[in-house]
Amino acid sequence: MEQGTVKWFNAEKGSGFIERENGDDVFVHFSAIQGDGFKSLDEGQAVTFDVEEGQRGPQAANVQKA
């Protein structure tokens, strides 16, 4: 798993970007967020995640709040 920080997340659209510790920013969709309840992330929040190849390039998967 990688570690990173939420660069921004739009709760209305359900997507945003995570700033990786090593590498380019990666797209995140709300469906990749693990946990119960409303799936959203806050700017500056620390997260851990896997990276998968999506239709438009790398994207975060199995996102967990650190």
Rank of each mutant, 00 (worst) to 15 (best):
N10H: 05
K13M: 11
K39C: 08
G14C: 07
G44M: 02
G14H: 01
Q55R: 15
V47I: 05
Q34M: 13
F49N: 01
F38A: 07
R56T: 08
G14I: 03
K39D: 05
F38W: 15
N22K: 10
V63P: 02
A46K: 14
Q59Y: 14
E19K: 15
K65M: 10
A11T: 12
N10Y: 01
L41K: 00
Q3Y: 14
E21H: 11
K7G: 03
V28L: 08
E43V: 15
V6N: 04
G44Q: 04
D42N: 13
F17T: 04
E12I: 12
T48A: 06
K65H: 08
E12Q: 13
V51P: 04
K7Y: 01
D24I: 12
T48W: 14
K7I: 07
G37I: 06
S31N: 07
F30S: 08
Q64M: 10
Q45C: 09
V63K: 00
E2T: 09
G4N: 00
R20Y: 07
G35Q: 09
E12C: 15
R56A: 09
V6E: 06
F49R: 02
T5Q: 06
G14A: 02
K39L: 10
G54N: 08
S15W: 15
G14R: 01
G54K: 07
K39Q: 09
A46F: 14
D24A: 14
G35P: 02
R56F: 15
F17C: 11
L41M: 04
D42Q: 15
N22L: 09
V51R: 00
F27M: 01
T48C: 13
G16T: 00
V47A: 02
T5M: 09
S40V: 09
R20P: 04
Q59H: 09
N10V: 02
I18V: 04
F49P: 03
D36C: 14
L41G: 04
F27G: 01
N22F: 11
Q3R: 15
A61K: 14
V51Y: 05
N62F: 03
R20W: 08
H29Q: 05
S31D: 06
E19Q: 14
G4W: 00
I18T: 00
G35E: 10
N62C: 06
F30K: 07
N10T: 04
K39P: 07
G54Y: 06
G4D: 01
D42T: 15
E12Y: 12
E53G: 07
R20G: 06
A66Q: 13
K7M: 00
Q45T: 10
E2L: 14
Q64H: 13
V63S: 03
F17Y: 08
E52M: 13
H29R: 03
G35W: 09
F17P: 01
V26R: 01
F27D: 05
T48L: 13
Q34T: 11
G35C: 13
N62R: 09
M1P: 12
M1Y: 11
A60S: 03
T5W: 15
K7A: 04
E52Y: 14
P58C: 08
D42Y: 15
A46T: 11
R20L: 06
R20I: 07
I33N: 02
L41Y: 01
S40Y: 13
N10R: 00
D25T: 11
M1D: 07
A60M: 00
V6W: 00
L41P: 00
K65Q: 09
F27Q: 01
N22V: 09
E19N: 08
F27P: 01
F49Q: 02
A46M: 12
L41D: 03
G44E: 01
S31E: 06
R20S: 07
T48K: 09
D36M: 11
Q55G: 11
V47Q: 00
A46D: 08
P58V: 09
E43D: 09
A60P: 02
V51C: 06
V6T: 02
T5A: 03
K65Y: 09
D42K: 15
N10D: 13
E2Q: 14
D25Q: 12
G54L: 06
Q3A: 12
V63A: 01
G35I: 09
F17A: 03
V63I: 06
H29M: 03
K13S: 11
Q45R: 04
W8S: 06
V26K: 00
A61R: 13
F30Y: 11
D24S: 14
V26T: 01
A66T: 12
E52S: 09
V47K: 01
D50C: 14
G4S: 01
V47R: 01
K39T: 07
S15M: 15
F30C: 09
R56D: 09
S15N: 10
F27T: 03
M1Q: 15
A11R: 14
S31R: 09
I18H: 00
S40T: 15
S31P: 06
V47S: 02
T5H: 12
Q34F: 10
D25N: 10
G4H: 01
M1R: 15
E12N: 12
Q64N: 11
T5E: 06
F30N: 05
T48D: 03
D42W: 14
K39H: 05
E2F: 15
D25I: 13
V28R: 00
I18R: 00
F9T: 03
G57W: 08
E2C: 14
G37L: 05
E52A: 11
S15P: 02
F17M: 10
W8N: 06
E52F: 14
H29L: 05
Q34R: 08
A11P: 13
D24W: 08
A60D: 03
V47L: 03
G14V: 02
A60V: 02
A46N: 10
I33Q: 02
Q34C: 13
Q59D: 01
D36W: 09
T5F: 13
G54R: 08
N62L: 05
N22I: 11
D42G: 11
S40N: 06
